[in-house]
Simulated assay, not measured.
Amino acid sequence: MKTLKLLIGLTSLLVVSAFAFAGFGDFANGYDLGDTVSDFKLQDVSGKQVSLSDFPDAKGIIVVFTCNTCPFALANEARILALDQKYKSKGFPVLAINPNSPELKAGEDFEAMQARAAAQGYTFPYLYDESHTVYSQFGATKTPHIYLLNREENELVVRYIGAIDDSVRDAETVTKRFVEQAVESLLNDEAVEPAITKAIGCSIKA
């Protein structure tokens, strides 16, 4: 009996380990620093399809995984708008993506996205990852979760992953603006430091 229990325990451990290494749950196989990002096409709240290739003149793109209902995402909404307003003209526009499933989280449907974008005056594309493939391709786990892409030899390369700043809950207590620092470093041909921070937010519902 003890031998049987031991075998069952070892089998369970191996199964859990296999899922972990396969990237289930936290998408361990998502993009890492230095990876080249593949193009994708998603529907914007305007109704048109938007791709990374629609920004051929951009020096890079600030990809933000966000949503309509997460309090952390809402607390960062004005900061996301500010990033687009500050850096779009410098070649780094914001591209926001909602990966959540409306079946799992009310208020995340396409019509709610359209209403949110209109009410808040979004100046950036707000895309619907309806098939939930793009967020898993990136490896995003939270809303908000930032991937800063830099154009290098006509490819978009990941140069920063993580949070917008060091105070996700309260903009008034921010002391380190991670994304701004990263964009400024890229604009000045400098290494990004830190290049990875912890994204704090709601788990993606997909």
Rank of each mutant, 00 (worst) to 15 (best):
N98Q: 01
G9V: 05
I97E: 01
K86I: 01
L186K: 09
A78G: 08
Y31I: 02
I196N: 13
I161Y: 12
G9A: 08
G201D: 04
A115V: 06
S51P: 07
F65I: 00
F65L: 01
D166Q: 14
A82S: 15
Q120Y: 05
C202V: 10
T36N: 12
K105S: 15
P194I: 03
N150W: 08
D44I: 14
V94A: 03
A22D: 13
L148W: 05
P99R: 07
G107P: 03
I61K: 12
V158G: 13
A96F: 01
G139P: 08
L4W: 07
I146N: 03
D54K: 00
A206N: 14
I200Y: 10
K48D: 15
R159P: 01
K5D: 07
S101C: 06
K176H: 11
L187M: 13
L14C: 10
L10W: 09
H132W: 10
K48V: 12
F27Q: 12
L187W: 01
I61E: 08
F178K: 04
V157F: 08
I200Q: 13
N98F: 04
A73S: 02
K105D: 10
S51I: 00
S38T: 13
G162Y: 08
F27T: 06
E108T: 03
P56T: 01
D170R: 09
K59Y: 05
L148F: 07
S185T: 06
D44T: 14
T133C: 06
Q43D: 12
Q137G: 10
K59Q: 07
E103K: 15
E172G: 07
K176M: 11
G201I: 04
T36E: 15
P99H: 00
E130G: 00
V94L: 01
V50K: 05
G107Q: 01
V157G: 08
D57F: 03
K142W: 08
Y135P: 02
I8Q: 11
P93G: 04
V158R: 11
V134E: 04
I146D: 00
S185Q: 06
E190Q: 15
L52I: 10
T143A: 04
A118E: 08
S46Y: 03
Q43F: 13
K88G: 05
I161E: 10
S53I: 00
S46H: 09
M113H: 02
Y160K: 12
V174P: 10
S53E: 13
P125Q: 01
D165Q: 12
S46P: 09
K86A: 14
I164T: 09
T175S: 15
L127G: 11
A58I: 03
E190S: 13
E180H: 10
S89D: 11
Y128I: 02
A112F: 01
F65Q: 00
H132S: 15
F138H: 03
Y160F: 15
F110R: 06
K5T: 11
A206R: 07
K90V: 02
F110Q: 07
Q120N: 11
Q114P: 03
Y128G: 03
D189V: 09
D109W: 02
L81I: 14
E153S: 14
L156A: 09
G25P: 09
K88M: 06
Q120M: 03
V37L: 07
A82V: 05
L83V: 02
D54I: 00
A140K: 06
